[in-house]
C-alpha cells in the first residue's frame, strides 16, 4: 500500500478515492484534485470540510448572501442527504453528472429533477412559470404577466405532448432530444481538465491513474 497509505489519508473519512473514481467518470487523480477544490470551497466561511449554503453562494455569486431559485435547487440536489451541507462524496457524485463523459441520460434526469421544483415527479406548468418569472426578475425584465404566460404556454405546447398540463420524464427526454442546447449547462468542460486547473496537486501526487 505505498500509494493508498500516504495519499488517501487526506480525504474525509469514509470516502475512498478509488471507490469514487469507480462510480464516476473521474480518475483517482481528478478525485484528489476535486478534493483540493472542495477544501477551498468548504473553508471560505467555516473550515469544516463541509460546503455550507453561504459558502456555495459565495463560490457561485462572489457574495455569501446572494441566492436565487436555481442556486437553491442546485444546492438541494447536491445535498443528497438533506442535512443542509454538501459533503465531499455528495460534491463528487453530483459534479460527475456535469462531466463531459457522463451519460446523456444522467444529465437529462438531473436537469429534470432540478426543474421539478416540488419533486412531484413532473414539471408542472405552475413550476415552469415560477422559473420563468424568477429568471426574468434576475434579468430585470418587465414583461407583462400575459407575455410570461405566452412564453410558458408555447413551451408547454411543445413539451407536454399528452396535454395533461405537466411535463413527465418521458416528455422531458423527448423535448431535450429535440432541443439539445437545453443540456448545455449540464456539462462543465473544466471537469475534463481538473488536474490542469489545479496543477498544485499534480506536483505532489504520486497516485497513478
Amino acid at each position: 500500500g505505498c500509494f493508498r497509505s500516504t495519499k488517501t489519508s487526506k480525504l474525509p473519512r469514509g470516502e475512498d478515492p478509488i471507490v469514487l473514481a469507480s462510480e464516476t467518470p473521474f480518475t483517482v487523480n481528478e478525485i484528489e484534485a476535486l478534493h483540493d477544490l472542495f477544501k477551498k470551497l468548504s473553508s471560505t466561511i467555516v473550515d469544516d470540510d463541509l460546503i455550507h449554503k453561504e459558502e456555495f453562494q459565495l463560490a457561485l455569486f462572489s457574495n455569501s448572501s446572494k441566492q436565487n431559485l436555481f442556486s437553491n435547487r442546485v444546492f438541494d440536489l447536491f445535498d443528497a442527504k438533506h442535512n443542509g451541507v454538501i459533503e465531499f462524496g455528495e460534491f463528487v457524485r453530483s459534479l460527475s453528472v456535469f462531466h463531459p463523459y457522463a451519460s446523456e441520460q444522467d444529465k437529462i434526469t438531473f436537469a429534470f429533477r432540478l426543474y421539478d421544483l416540488r419533486q412531484t415527479g413532473y414539471i408542472e406548468r405552475v413550476e415552469l412559470k415560477e422559473m420563468v418569472v424568477a429568471i426574468l426578475s434576475e434579468l430585470d425584465s418587465t414583461l407583462t404577466d400575459e407575455a410570461v404566460d405566452s412564453i410558458v404556454d408555447k413551451t408547454m405546447i411543445e413539451a407536454d405532448l399528452n396535454g395533461d398540463g405537466r411535463i413527465d420524464p418521458e416528455e422531458w427526454k423527448d423535448f431535450v432530444t429535440k432541443n439539445p442546447s437545453l443540456l448545455k449547462n449540464m456539462t462543465l468542460p473544466y471537469l475534463k481538465e481538473l488536474t490542469l486547473a489545479f496543477p498544485s496537486f499534480v506536483l505532489h501526487t504520486e497516485v497513478p491513474d
Binding site: V74, V132, I151, A159, S181, L182, N185
Partner: peptide
C-alpha cells in the same frame, strides 16, 4: 426579446444560479 418564440427552458438555463463554472474560478 421576442417572448412568443422564446423557449422557456432556454431562458431558464441562462440563470447565473445554474452556471456552476463559477465554482472553478478563483
Amino acid at each position: 426579446m421576442a417572448p412568443v418564440t422564446m423557449n422557456a427552458f432556454e431562458l431558464i438555463s441562462t440563470s447565473q444560479g445554474l452556471n456552476l463554472s463559477s465554482l472553478f474560478e478563483k
